[in-house]
Design a protein around this nucleic acid. Structure first.
Length: 276
DNA sequence: AACGCGCCCTGTCCGC
DNA sequence: TGCGGACAGGGCGCGT
């Protein structure tokens, strides 16, 4: 479940190694459901070969590899997508879908795209399509002050605050884990209606969201199940989670057992005593 | 129009 | 031990 801290960790690693990297060759190992979306896999390979990556950006949970020739490679990890740097003698694993052979200023590199659940994608888009995609994304939560974040979120709506936090169109990058963690730290129950939050609630929630995202980023993200970075390393934030995945365990503040319910189709964890 | 919900997918875990 | 079913969830697309 890569969210902002995990995707940003991957972005930093990709950016460090892919600047001025020529995509020399793309080998599609496995069809199945086409990871390139509407494009045919052979067309994707042919059109991608020969392009040069200038920089790797992130918007919310979306990775954007800008191309010197214009356009970009877009990649969304969704649940189990992975970019992994591998050695020359690497043998394809069961869920590997494509191998990118790169010529970088530091020599040849090999980058594998793998995805167990096949929700993720890699897509080649032109500049116009790129702008259309980016227009759908809300504020970057770590690139603005807490008040700006609170203002972007604050609205009149009948939905629950948990569902609201997962909506990427106002603020982007927060997913199931960090929504639960931010709400716990702010003392707000996930089922609370958006209309019932005060100005102080919004600001506190913006602050705790930034806190938890920054703290997780420092640990290179959370590996609850599948997530690993481009070197196969797990993130270190799992043990610092206070509610997510801790059903029945004692609340770190008041020792009340953490509850798990479903809100907006998502597993949701909270302390029934601390969060109102 | 905004919002809720089903669905895509496969590995893992649980109960019988 | 084997097996069926529930579960994990980001975001698209559809229905209300």
């Amino acid at each position: 479940m890569p969210e902002l801290p995990e995707v940003e960790t991957v972005r930093r690693q990709l950016h460090a190694r892919l600047q001025q990297a020529l995509i020399e060759r793309v080998d599609i190992w496995r069809g199945g459901r086409l990871f390139v979306g509407e494009q045919a896999t052979n067309a994707f390979a042919q059109q991608t070969q020969g392009k040069t990556i200038t920089q790797v950006e992130r918007r919310g949970k979306l990775l954007i590899m800008h191309l010197h020739q214009g356009g970009a490679l877009l990649s969304h990890l969704k649940m189990t997508g992975r970019w992994i740097f591998v050695e020359n003698d690497y043998a394809a694993g069961k869920h590997d879908q494509a191998l990118f052979t790169l010529m970088t200023p530091n020599g040849t590199g090999r980058l594998v795209w793998a995805d167990v659940r096949k929700f993720g994608y890699v897509r080649l888009v032109d500049d116009e399509a790129l702008q259309e995609v980016l227009a759908r994304y809300g504020l970057e939560p770590l690139e603005h002050g807490a008040q700006a974040l609170a203002d972007a979120w604050r609205t009149k709506s009948t939905r629950t605050i948990k569902a609201h936090l997962l909506d990427q169109s106002r603020v982007t990058g927060v997913g199931n884990i960090y929504a639960d963690e931010a709400l716990f730290r702010a003392g707000i129950r996930p089922t609370r209606r958006v209309t019932k939050l005060s100005r102080e609630d919004w600001l506190r929630l913006a602050q705790t969201t930034q806190e938890v995202l920054r703290a997780s980023l420092e640990q290179r993200g959370t590996s609850a199940n599948d997530y690993v970075d481009t070197l196969g390393e797990r993130g270190g934030f799992l043990s610092l989670l206070q509610v997510y995945g801790r059903e029945g365990e004692a609340c770190v503040t008041c020792s009340t057992p953490i509850k798990r319910i479903v809100v907006g189709q998502r597993g949701t964890h909270f302390c029934p005593a601390c969060q109102r």
